[in-house]
Amino acid sequence: MTTFTRLTVTDLLDHAAGLGELLADAVAGGASVGFLDGFTPQQGERWWRGLVEPVKGGQLLLWAALDGPRVLGTVQLRLTSYPNGRHRADLAKLLVHRDARGRGLGRRLLELAEQGAAEHGVTLLLLDTQTDSPAEQLYRAAGWTAFGTVPEHAADPAGVLRPTTFFHKALRTEATK
């Protein structure tokens, strides 16, 4: 049975190996998430462990979809510390393991991040994703609005420069109702 949880620092460390495997799976599957072909689960684990301080400091919120100890998916919410931007946050690294797709995990993780953002007073979310990717379809279906595409913005895992589509979504919070 899949459970969804917001990860604490302890949870992050406990699941770092599984998160590393998930990230390596995403890269191997062609996801343009910042890393190139040959990215290993061990490199992924080190990358996730590098997020301890932002999680501890409250600048980064993480959720995971878990099947027992196995990490099936994750999403990040990066809060800003700029005084003029505390109303906005960036959604990042929405990942679902290739063998767990099609079960609604990505949509549920997205909902949790949006709820978490609203609970933190965030009224505007931003994200970017590779143009024409399956993730782009998910964001559109979830009510996100595309506001621009930048050609050759980021390399895919094979190193080929691809366009990136940027999205935003306004959230309603108790303060804005």
Rank of each mutant, 00 (worst) to 15 (best):
F35V: 00
G50F: 09
D25V: 11
P54T: 04
G73F: 05
A89L: 05
P41T: 01
G68H: 00
R49F: 04
W48A: 15
G30D: 05
G104S: 02
G102D: 07
G106A: 14
R70W: 03
L60V: 11
G44H: 02
S32L: 01
A89V: 07
W47I: 12
R70F: 05
L77Y: 04
P41M: 01
F35T: 01
L36V: 02
H87K: 10
L95P: 07
R49M: 06
D37Q: 08
G34N: 02
R108L: 09
S32W: 00
D99L: 09
Q59P: 13
G38Y: 07
A92M: 08
V71F: 02
R49T: 13
A17M: 07
G34P: 00
D67L: 13
L94D: 04
R70K: 08
G44A: 06
E45K: 11
L13G: 00
G58K: 01
G18F: 01
V27K: 10
G29W: 11
G20E: 05
A26Q: 10
T8M: 04
L91Y: 05
G38V: 03
P69V: 07
V75K: 10
A89G: 07
R108H: 14
L66I: 05
D25A: 13
L105E: 05
P41L: 00
R88D: 00
F39H: 06
E21R: 15
Q42E: 12
A89R: 06
V27M: 08
L95H: 10
G68N: 00
P54M: 06
P54K: 02
S32P: 00
V9K: 00
D37H: 11
S81W: 14
G58Y: 01
K93V: 12
A28F: 08
L61E: 13
A92N: 11
R108I: 12
S32H: 00
G57A: 13
L77T: 01
A17R: 15
R78N: 14
R46G: 13
L12Q: 01
E21D: 14
E21Q: 15
R101T: 13
D14C: 02
G34M: 04
R108E: 15
G44F: 01
L66E: 02
L62N: 14
D11T: 03
A17L: 09
A64M: 05
P83G: 13
L72I: 03
A65F: 01
R78L: 10
R6D: 09
A89Y: 04
W63T: 10
